[in-house]
Design a protein around this nucleic acid. Structure first.
Lengths: 348, 348
DNA sequence: GTGAAAGCGCTAACAC
DNA sequence: GTGTTAGCGCTTTCAC
C-alpha cells in the first residue's frame, strides 16, 4: 500500500496527537505565547514525528507575508541575471523565501502580465534587474504596494538601487597595468551611449592620463580585432597595455595580437571586463579581467528586499558595490604589480 | 495625497458596490453558477472599475491549486537551464502560472531545502532539469504528492521525461556533411562517459561508416585544438568534414584549422552542437551547428506539468524532441546540400 | 498555562 | 436567480 500520497499533516493533527488545542500547538511551534516548557517540547516533538510542515499559503493569508519574492528581468541571455539570481536565492533560501523568476524581454505587455501574476500571489517584494544600469525595465514599479529593489538596472531617484562600481573597477585595472610598468595604455570599449562605458573610460583616463586613447565600438570579438588593426596600422605609438570594455572585446584583441605575432602578455598586457568564464577562460592566454561581483549584488538585493518586507527602514539611493580584479595570464607581471601595489598602499 | 498604497480591493468590496452578495460576486466573476446575464455583467464591470484582482493565496487555499510550479536545476551556469526556463515560462504565463526557480548546484541539502520550501508553498508541480540527460539531481522526487516532469535530466523509469534526440541531431549533421560531398568524416567529441556522446557517436558512425574515426576528449576549445593537431600530424588521411560534440570543441577546431592555413569551409567543413550563440556566432567563420531545441523542451514540460496538475492522464516514458541544424558559414555547400536533401526526400 | 472563537479572502454547498 | 453558511489551514486576541 502506497502511503506516499497520504494527505499532508495539518496542525490539527499535531494538536490532536499531542493532546492540546490547535491554538496551543500553533503557539508552541512558533515560540510565541506562554506555556510549560514541557508542553512546548512535546508539541514540537509530535510535529517532528508526524513530519508536519505548515501550509505556507494558509499562513500567508493571516500573516500578510508570503515568504515569496519576484525577480523581474529583461536579460534573457542570463549573463547578468544568473549570477544576480544566484546571489538573491542564496540570501533568501535560508529564510524560507522562494523566488519567482520572470523573464520579460523588453515587452511591456509581458512585463505587466508577470507583474500582475506576482502581485496576485502576494509577493513580499520585487527585485528588478536587467542588462545595463542606465536603462529601465518596460514597466512602472514605482507605485506598488510592495517594496522594490533595483539591481543592475535603472530605477527612480528615490528607489533603492544596487550597481557595480564601474569607476573603481576600471581604475584598479588601469592602475594594475601602470603598476606592472606598462606606459602606453589604450582603452578599447563599447558604444559611447552606455553609462558604464563613460564611467569606465573616465576612470581609465584619470589614471592613464587625459591624452590616453579610448576607442569605441560594439561589444564584440570582431570589434576587438578591428581595434587592433587600427592601432597597429596607424601612425600613433603602439600600446603596451590594453584595457578592454568587456571580455569579448578582450578576446578579440588577444586573438588579433597573436595573429600578428605579438606576444601576450610578453609584449602587451590585456585586461578584460566581466569575468565571463566561458570567454575569459577559453582565451589564449586566459584573461585577467574585472569581476563585477554580480552575485554579491544579488545577495545584497536579497537582504535589502527582506528588510523592506519586514518594514525596516532602508536608506534609498544608489549603492555601488566594488569590482574585483581577477588575475589570469593575459596581463603578466603579477609579482611586480603586487609589489608596487603594496608600496602604493603603504604610501597612502 | 498618495493613493498608491491603498488597500487591495477585495471581492467583498466588489460585491458591496455592485449590490450583490459575496457569493454572487464570486460566481459572476468565475463564470459559474446561474444568474441574470445583467447581474453577471454588472459585477464584472464593477470589478474592472475598482481594479479588483483576486488574492491568489486565498483562492489557492480553497481550490487546492496555487497556480505555481517549481523548477529545480543543478545547472548553475544556465547554459541549458535558461532556454528550458524560458520555454516553461512561455507556456505557463498565459495560464497565470508562476515559476519558482531553484538552483541547487549538486548539493543534496540545498536541494532538500528548496524542495521543502516549494512543497510548503503548495506548488502544483515540479519540473526537474539539469545539465546532462544521464545524471539525476541529488534529491528524490519520486514519491511526492505533486506531479513531476523531468526535462534534460534523468528521472525514474516510470516518470515523464523530456530529452533532445541526440541521435537524430547527429544523424542530420553527418548526413549534411555527406550531402555536400564531404567524404572523409571525423567526429571530435566529449568524454565517453556521457550518454549523449555515445548516442551522437553511434548516429555519426551509422551515417559515416563504422570505420569513421571518433575522438574523445574534454568539452573544451583546447581539446578542439589538440584533436586537429592529432589529425593533421598523424598518418591517417585528413578529414574534409568534422562534426564536433559541442560548439566549444568546434570553435577550437576551426581556430586550429585556420592557424594551420586550412580554409573553413573551403577545404574542410565543420559542424558544432548546442547552438550556443556566444560561441557559435563569434567563431570565424560562424558555426553551423545543431540546436537542441531546449526552449521547446521547456514549453512541452510546461504543458505536461499543467495537464498533470489538472489531473489529466499523461503517458509516462521518455519523449525525444527533435534537434534542428542551424546553418551558418562553417560548413559551406548549402546549395548543394539543399539540392541533395531535396532529392533524398523525394526518393524516400 | 491553555483553549475557544474569530478571521485572513475566497469558493462551494445548499437553502430560499 | 441570489444569499446564507461553512469551510480551506493557520494565527491571534481574549477569556478562563
Amino acid at each position: 500500500m502506497d502511503v506516499s500520497k497520504a494527505e499532508r499533516i495539518r496542525i490539527y493533527d499535531v494538536a490532536r496527537v499531542a493532546g492540546v488545542s490547535v491554538a496551543t500547538a500553533s503557539k508552541a511551534l512558533n515560540d510565541t505565547g506562554r506555556m510549560t516548557e514541557e508542553t512546548r517540547k512535546r508539541v514540537k516533538q509530535t510535529a517532528a514525528a508526524l513530519g508536519f510542515r505548515p501550509n505556507a499559503m494558509a499562513r500567508a493569508l493571516t500573516q500578510q507575508r508570503s515568504f515569496t519574492i519576484g525577480l523581474l528581468t529583461n536579460d534573457t541571455y542570463g549573463r547578468f541575471t544568473l549570477p544576480v539570481m544566484a546571489g538573491v536565492s542564496e540570501a533568501l533560501v535560508d529564510q524560507g523565501v522562494s523566488v519567482f523568476l520572470c523573464g520579460i524581454e523588453d515587452d511591456a505587455a509581458l512585463a505587466k502580465l508577470h507583474l500582475d501574476a506576482m502581485l496576485d500571489k502576494q509577493v513580499d517584494g520585487i527585485i528588478a534587474t536587467g542588462k545595463r544600469i542606465d536603462r529601465r525595465l518596460p514597466v512602472d514599479l514605482s507605485h506598488l504596494s510592495v517594496p522594490v529593489v533595483y539591481a543592475f538596472t535603472e530605477g527612480p531617484d528615490d528607489a533603492v538601487t544596487l550597481v557595480s562600481d564601474d569607476g573603481q573597477g576600471a581604475r584598479e585595472a588601469t592602475q594594475w597595468l601602470a603598476n606592472i610598468g606598462r606606459r602606453t595604455l589604450v582603452h578599447v570599449t563599447g558604444p559611447e551611449s552606455f553609462a558604464s562605458v563613460s564611467a569606465r573610460a573616465g576612470a581609465f583616463r584619470a589614471v592613464a592620463g587625459q591624452g590616453a586613447q579610448v576607442l569605441h565600438g560594439s561589444w564584440s570579438e570582431a570589434w576587438g580585432h578591428e581595434a587592433i588593426a587600427k592601432l597597429w596600422n596607424g601612425d600613433a605609438p603602439r600600446p603596451d597595455g590594453i584595457f578592454c570594455g568587456n571580455d569579448q572585446i578582450a578576446r578579440g584583441v588577444v586573438d588579433a595580437l597573436r595573429e600578428r605575432g605579438v606576444d601576450v602578455p610578453g609584449d602587451v598586457s590585456v585586461i578584460g571586463f566581466d569575468n565571463w568564464e566561458i570567454v575569459a577562460a577559453a582565451t589564449r592566454p586566459p584573461l585577467t579581467t574585472v569581476d563585477m561581483n554580480l552575485k554579491e549584488i544579488g545577495r545584497e538585493a536579497g537582504r535589502l528586499i527582506l528588510e523592506l518586507a519586514e518594514g525596516k527602514p532602508v536608506e534609498p539611493g544608489i549603492r555601488k558595490l566594488p569590482c574585483k580584479l581577477v588575475l589570469r595570464q593575459s596581463c603578466g607581471g603579477d609579482a611586480i604589480a603586487a609589489r608596487n601595489q603594496g608600496e602604493a598602499l603603504q604610501e597612502s
